[in-house]
């Protein structure tokens, strides 16, 4: 067996490796090159030096989009994970109908972001009209709250499933031992369940952090960046720069922003992974 693997490993590795090169590494390198160019179509690109990066880093809308995205990511990550964990704890208590609840909570995740965005746009606008408040696309704070509500509604179910899986994999004897030692429910939660749940927390934080940072569909459908780019997040800002503008220089700006964006996402998720991994315990 060992021998066979040693001999045939290229057969297993190469297809995926080739796909990775063709589908990721090569386009990424090409994109990196294009971020220094002016272009309309990629075969007619002309070199533009560092101008694209200077523009991207000084544009007010892009900086605003960065802070807006950062704030959104923090708020939505906290809301989603707190709620998902709470629901997961509630649904692992062997109440009647647990399975039904689990699937109902999971359902919203099955609907695509664009559709959800439009549905919530109608719902929230109706509520705001009834309250006599300005609509989503007129008032940035409402747009922000709307986005958080939408993301929570969509993501909580998904994260809940991961937490439930984590909770169920905690050996029963740990909990039993804790109870015998006289630990109350709160102590069990903080001292036994949470430390053992760290792998799930790592993955959930990673997912909701990157999802929040890369959010596009929901942003486009719910507010479209209105009013005046105030609810525009990074991905939508890049899209608008690239497609909403005429002229070859804008494609370069968009490309430079996209590279900056990519680096940001990688750095942030690596930091987060390192931070939470260190808290994981061996079972």
């Amino acid at each position: 067996m060992e021998k066979a693997i040693k001999k045939y490993w290229p057969v297993f590795v190469l297809p995926t490796f080739a796909a990775f090169i063709i589908g990721f590494v090569w386009p990424f390198l090409q994109g990196l090159y294009l971020s220094f160019c002016k272009f309309i179509t990629i075969d007619k690109a002309s070199f533009n030096g560092l101008k694209n990066y200077i523009f991207a880093l000084t544009e007010a809308d892009f900086l605003h989009a960065f802070w807006f995205t950062a704030l959104f990511t923090v708020v939505s990550t906290l809301c989603i994970n707190a709620a998902a964990l709470a629901i997961a704890l509630a649904l692992t208590r062997e109440i009647k109908g647990t399975n039904l609840f689990r699937s109902v909570f999971f359902m919203p995740n099955l609907i695509g972001g664009i559709v959800l965005g439009y549905i919530w746009n109608i719902l929230l606008n109706c509520v705001l009209t009834l309250l006599g408040k300005p609509l989503l696309s007129l008032h940035a704070p409402y747009g922000f709250i709307g986005l958080v509500i939408l993301m929570c509604w969509q993501q909580i179910g998904y994260m809940m499933i991961i937490y439930i899986a984590g909770l169920q994999s905690i050996p029963g004897d740990y909990l039993e031992a804790a109870r015998i030692d006289g630990a109350n429910e709160r102590q069990i939660l903080w001292k036994v369940k949470l430390p053992n749940l760290m792998p799930s927390i790592t993955i959930c934080l990673f997912l909701s952090l990157t999802n929040g940072f890369k959010l596009f569909d929901q942003n486009l459908a719910l507010t479209g960046g209105d009013p005046a780019h105030k609810t525009e997040m990074l991905a939508l800002n890049i899209y608008q720069t690239f497609y909403g503008r005429s002229g070859p220089q804008w494609k370069g700006y968009g490309q430079a922003k996209a590279v900056i964006f990519c680096v940001l996402v990688i750095v942030i998720s690596l930091c987060q992974l390192r931070a939470t991994r260190s808290k994981e315990v061996q079972q």
Partner: peptide
Amino acid sequence: CDPAALSG
């Protein structure tokens, strides 16, 4: 309709 509802 009311002018405030136009955005939608």
